[in-house]
Design a protein around this nucleic acid. Sequence first.
DNA 1: CCTGTTGTTTTCAAATTGGAAACAGTTTTA
DNA 2: TAAAACTGTTTCCAATTTGAAAACAACAGG
Lengths: 292, 292
Amino acid sequence: MNKLRAIQLFVRLAELGSFTRVAEQLNTSKSVISKEVSRLEEDLGVRLLHRTTRNVQLTHAGEGYLQRAREILAQLEAADSFVQDLQQAPRGRLKINAPMALGITELSRMFADFMRAYPDIELDIHLGDEDVDLVEQGFDLGFRASSQPLDLAYVGRPLTRFGYHVCAAPQYLQQHEPIVSVDDLRSHNCFEYSYFKGKNVWPLDDGVRIGGTLRVNSVIFMLTAIKSGLGLGLVPEFLCREALASGELVEVLPDARKPELTLYALYPARHFVPARVLQCIDFLEAWFLRQR
Amino acid sequence: MNKLRAIQLFVRLAELGSFTRVAEQLNTSKSVISKEVSRLEEDLGVRLLHRTTRNVQLTHAGEGYLQRAREILAQLEAADSFVQDLQQAPRGRLKINAPMALGITELSRMFADFMRAYPDIELDIHLGDEDVDLVEQGFDLGFRASSQPLDLAYVGRPLTRFGYHVCAAPQYLQQHEPIVSVDDLRSHNCFEYSYFKGKNVWPLDDGVRIGGTLRVNSVIFMLTAIKSGLGLGLVPEFLCREALASGELVEVLPDARKPELTLYALYPARHFVPARVLQCIDFLEAWFLRQR
DNA sequence: CCTGTTGTTTTCAAATTGGAAACAGTTTTA
DNA sequence: TAAAACTGTTTCCAATTTGAAAACAACAGG
């Protein structure tokens, strides 16, 4: 038995309350979880959990062990960070979460530079636009674009600000009615981004309810559709900058009032923040300053 | 790599200053020690020891890690013995309060099993349906059936849920008017349980005021009267289950809405709850889970 | 330049592990 | 009431990892 892993599994299990979910979250089979936790119980000679087919609940012994196990794992992590931070060049693994669109544009260039600067740091980058809990999923760092301040459980550092543009292909604009006011959008094919907070109301001036033939959870996908001349989209600046410069896309309603978002780097407010995380954030801040 | 064992080996190694001696002391080969410690260093990305052919000495990082590692191992050991002490064949007396009806049915079987499992625990069981103050009377544990959450001065663990049935003897039903609706009960001989919260209003559908020739503070007594064909009673499921199965009693108005009660195990929210109490509750929970 | 001792590496049989599938329960659904 | 859908556990076997011995490399001391 790998006792340390068994303990980690037990803690996870206590949090999620289900063998199946732990297995899913760790991309392994539930038999592994079951066997390892059973072995831990056997090793201790104590039942830590009551199992039923519907849920798992801690025994009294399990509750006591959980509390101590958490502490021990935290201390071990701190010990590891301690020795790693003594090294001159930071090393270790950084698990990072970022929005898809941002990840494959700005951040891909940024992290290429980062890897050059810190060749001993392993990056584990998860791109996705679903809401994730950084702590629960073990992320060291996350990127969020927001117009409001952020969750207090995290430390957030503003990196840069960016806006949106309403974009269309020149071809589309030729073939359709001209757009001179925000209200004209109502009669156009405006694409909707599924995760967009305003849903089908674009925050132009006082807001305009739009409609169209495409609703998709990827701005990249949407951008391709726009470039093909199929419709209009509200696209983050960093995504359309190139296409606007080259003339492949044209900005519509450049003078309409549009919101500005701030891009934050977030990290869990732990007791011991590993040096590599802080170092990475310093790098981020410097990098984005240089870009402007 | 078994990290925990690697850490243990590292600590031993730092103490003995020699791979060979660690191997000897643990009755294993030195290759194991060498490989495992190397793997730990690799995992951390940090050299913990300077090796020469003559002796082993800690690096700066190694010293820091050693100190933390010792602490972690000590805490782990403490956690292990903590749960094991909880488990240790507990002894002593458990003073327990339970409702009469429950005590002479379910609980009598449950505690028979418990006594087999923990032969060193003395049980002092007080059955009774009066309201008692557990703390004042020195009870370690009490059982309460309730539809609402419980007094905050106690810690309560839900054990099982059960319902009620309106029961009568077949003989009684033959000799009296048929009962097809809740309201029909008004004209029947419905027995009243003195401690019942609703007094003479049975909580069927929207409630029905009943009356009859027996009012008694023992459901067992009442059950005997019902079996004799003298009248109807509102009886907890666990009490009439057998009689219903054997046909000795028949359920009346099975489709009427009836309340469901949760059976709780209660113990005073003291600072130090004796291990035997916690142990007993774990046993209870497991037992009732198994029953279902 | 041996000799004895150190830690590391190699080797390969033996033990352990991990995932799929079968299984035994239970709850939910139709 | 039967079927479907989950639960956690167990079984099975290929794949990996482990461990002890032996070979090896490095070095101190005679």
